[in-house]
Every structure is written in C-alpha cells, then in structure tokens.
Amino acid sequence: MNSKKNYFELFDLPVDFALDTRVLAERYRALVRVVRADFLSDEEDETARSLAWIDRAYQTLTEPLARAEYLFRLYGAEETGAATSEEAPGALLVEEMERQEALVAATNRSDLESALSEVLTRLAERGAALDKELHQLFADPSPPNLSAAREVVRQLQALARCQRETEERQAERLKRRPD
C-alpha cells in the first residue's frame, strides 16, 4: 500500500470538494477486500497499518468539514490567517448569537418539539446553502477562494455546534416525555 498517495488518489477520485459518496464507498469496500486478501501474504502489522490508513482516508473524505480541512492542507492553505474581511468575524458572531437566541426562544415555546424541528430545518437550509458555496469555492482553489472557503467552513462548524445542541435538547425532551 503506497501511503505517499493522497486520500483522493488512494480511491482514484479527482481532488475536489465535490465527490460521489457512493463511488467512494464502493472503492473503499473494494480496497479493504484487496488488503484483507493480501493479509495471508503480508505481515499482520503492515495489513493493520494499511487498513487504518484506508479507514482514516475514507472517514476524512466522507465528512464534508474534514474533507475541506484536508483540501486546505493539500492546497497548502492550512493556515489561511484571519478572516477575509474585517466584518466577517463580527458577522459570524452575530449570526451565531441569533441562532442561539432562536434556540432559547424555541426551548421556551409550549410546542417544544415543533419549535426544535423548525430550528433544525433552518439550520439544515443554511447548511445546504453554505455547502453549495463551498463546492463553488473549491472548484477554483485560488488563494482568495481558499480564504473565502475557510470562512464558509467556520460558519459550517458553528452551524454544526448549534445543530448538536438542538439535537441534545430534543433528546432531553424525549427522555422526559412520559410514556
């Protein structure tokens, strides 16, 4: 197994944010079968290292934020520095505060389950719009686009945190619900 390949090369995929996860999954399963079949002729340690590397590559490419971070490393844009504009950090903070306020307001509503579902729907819609923007930015990985993509990733990370918190509140609500 050639561990000098990048994760995209490992699965014979183009280096791009957009990828077909079904194709990735098929190639993952095929690669694992080949490595396991070679187990009889290779040393156990080498097989375990190869499988771990394949699994790490697969997990990275299937998770969009991890894939974006990996692309930043491949493009040499690991540390893109501060935000793309002076307004971006403040705007991001305001947007995150508004989401938190909406979550608190939803928690205080009498129809909590419906309110939390609405919050999750809005988060999913915003996430889809940001995901689309990220696809466009990575399609042309120029330095300005990579810097803008970094900001989009920060927004997606904030959305993910809010989504986790909302889902936790939903789970708490379900636990407290009388049977």
Score class of each variant (00 low, 15 high):
residue 137 L to T: 04
residue 170 Q to Y: 11
residue 165 E to S: 09
residue 146 L to G: 00
residue 68 A to R: 07
residue 50 S to R: 14
residue 121 T to N: 10
residue 90 G to Y: 14
residue 172 E to Y: 00
residue 163 Q to K: 13
residue 103 L to Q: 00
residue 104 V to A: 12
residue 8 F to T: 13
residue 46 E to Q: 14
residue 137 L to H: 07
residue 54 I to Y: 13
residue 118 E to M: 03
residue 150 R to F: 14
residue 85 S to E: 04
residue 156 L to P: 08
residue 8 F to G: 05
residue 175 K to N: 05
residue 158 A to G: 15
residue 28 Y to K: 06
residue 23 V to T: 07
residue 93 L to M: 02
residue 27 R to K: 14
residue 19 L to Y: 03
residue 53 W to F: 09
residue 163 Q to I: 01
residue 87 E to L: 15
residue 6 N to E: 03
residue 1 M to H: 12
residue 119 V to T: 08
residue 75 Y to R: 09
residue 132 K to P: 01
residue 161 R to I: 00
residue 148 A to R: 14
residue 86 E to D: 05
residue 97 M to W: 10
residue 80 T to V: 14
residue 91 A to V: 12
residue 108 N to R: 14
residue 172 E to L: 08
residue 144 P to N: 00
residue 61 L to V: 11
residue 149 A to P: 09
residue 33 R to I: 07
residue 130 L to N: 10
residue 59 Q to R: 11
residue 7 Y to A: 02
residue 163 Q to T: 11
residue 13 L to K: 03
residue 27 R to C: 01
residue 82 A to L: 11
residue 121 T to Q: 10
residue 79 E to A: 06
residue 137 L to F: 04
residue 134 L to Y: 00
residue 3 S to V: 06
residue 58 Y to V: 11
residue 42 D to F: 08
residue 1 M to Q: 07
residue 150 R to G: 04
residue 126 R to L: 12
residue 171 A to H: 05
residue 61 L to F: 06
residue 170 Q to W: 13
residue 31 L to Q: 09
residue 39 F to W: 09
residue 64 P to F: 00
residue 42 D to Y: 09
residue 26 E to S: 10
residue 16 D to K: 07
residue 120 L to Y: 00
residue 75 Y to V: 08
residue 134 L to V: 03
residue 69 E to N: 10
residue 15 V to R: 07
residue 135 H to V: 00
residue 101 E to R: 12
residue 11 F to N: 01
residue 179 D to T: 03
residue 106 A to C: 08
residue 15 V to T: 08
residue 133 E to H: 06
residue 94 V to A: 11
residue 96 E to F: 15
residue 117 S to K: 11
residue 152 V to S: 03
residue 103 L to P: 01
residue 113 E to K: 01
residue 143 P to V: 09
residue 30 A to W: 01
residue 154 R to Y: 11
residue 119 V to H: 05
residue 142 S to D: 02
residue 101 E to M: 09
residue 22 R to Q: 14
residue 58 Y to E: 08
residue 101 E to F: 06
residue 19 L to V: 02
residue 15 V to N: 04
residue 59 Q to K: 13
residue 142 S to Q: 04
residue 46 E to I: 02
residue 162 C to G: 06
residue 167 E to L: 15
residue 79 E to D: 08
residue 140 D to I: 10
residue 60 T to C: 03
residue 40 L to Y: 15
residue 12 D to G: 05
residue 21 T to G: 02
residue 155 Q to W: 15
residue 74 L to D: 11
residue 58 Y to S: 10
residue 20 D to H: 01
residue 51 L to M: 15
residue 110 S to M: 10
residue 95 E to N: 14
residue 133 E to V: 03
residue 29 R to C: 03
residue 56 R to N: 09
residue 149 A to Q: 01
residue 9 E to A: 07
residue 85 S to K: 07
residue 61 L to E: 08
residue 49 R to N: 05
residue 170 Q to D: 01
residue 140 D to M: 10
residue 24 L to C: 01
residue 178 P to M: 04
residue 98 E to Y: 10
residue 73 R to D: 12
residue 3 S to M: 15
residue 25 A to L: 08
residue 57 A to G: 06
residue 19 L to D: 02
residue 141 P to H: 08
residue 133 E to T: 10
residue 162 C to K: 08
residue 149 A to C: 02
residue 68 A to P: 04
residue 79 E to T: 04
residue 99 R to G: 11
residue 66 A to C: 05
residue 139 A to V: 00
residue 58 Y to K: 10
residue 123 L to F: 11
residue 35 V to Q: 06
residue 143 P to D: 06
